[in-house]
Design a protein around this nucleic acid. Sequence first.
DNA 1: CACCCCTTTGACGCTAACGTAAAGCCATGA
DNA 2: TCATGGCTTTACGTTAGCGTCAAAGGGGTG
Lengths: 130, 130
Amino acid sequence: MNRSVTESRDLFAIADLAREFDISTRAIRFYEAKGLLSPERVGATRIFRRRDRARLILILRGKRLGFSLRDISDYLSLYDANRSQQVHLLTAKVDERLASLEAQLQDLQTTIAELKEIRKLADERLDKAG
Amino acid sequence: MNRSVTESRDLFAIADLAREFDISTRAIRFYEAKGLLSPERVGATRIFRRRDRARLILILRGKRLGFSLRDISDYLSLYDANRSQQVHLLTAKVDERLASLEAQLQDLQTTIAELKEIRKLADERLDKAG
DNA sequence: CACCCCTTTGACGCTAACGTAAAGCCATGA
DNA sequence: TCATGGCTTTACGTTAGCGTCAAAGGGGTG
């Protein structure tokens, strides 16, 4: 068994990534303009590598979690700092992020619990109405 | 032991809520304009009851979770439907919400795990350098 | 009465995160 | 050769979620 198609490649056009993740090319260019991505160029054409693709995945996950691009940018720099031996200051920032993420986790679990309760009540009513 | 100050009251001015939750009165009026709140009026002045306050708490939690006011509005209507015996269609919508919230929970847990890993690596480097 | 503080509505301003032309460059194929 | 299609940049448009006056009206106090 060989690897999946996507993981076996290393070079992507902007349209490839747009298609794969169902976003617009405009969005990708926008992320680059904001410094979240920095694809190579061949002439004027953007060439994305696996690393860029990996960052894009993180960007989109950040968005699903409701973070701003500014936040996501800070978040990505934690990964970069991790790779580039800038250990100083890193742990403090990571701890900050972790604290707020865990607060968000609490909010989320509370919300899920409440919805499950509503669901349960609704089911019980349906039973009575049988 | 009597109840906490906030819970013992039933009437709130807009400024009371703004102070308590550290948001602007403008924001509260905006939520009303969007239909998320519907305080009573005495003359032209808004009077908020505990129920409004409870909704505001849900609104703010929704915002912390990164939801749009539109999403939050839908979410609140689930609570309303629960109170008002509109059981039909309710469970389906609740299930939808639950599914996407649990997806978000996954994203969040993945992110937290990654950050903890980065933290661990940073600590180990500091130990070596120690 | 004058003053201050809180309230109201209305209107304009602002940032983020793109959408949407517009116009040009380059390669491919009939 | 010319059309087609994908890529580029530039630039203006749009929506959400408020911030920020502006103007006017109570309502209690000295």
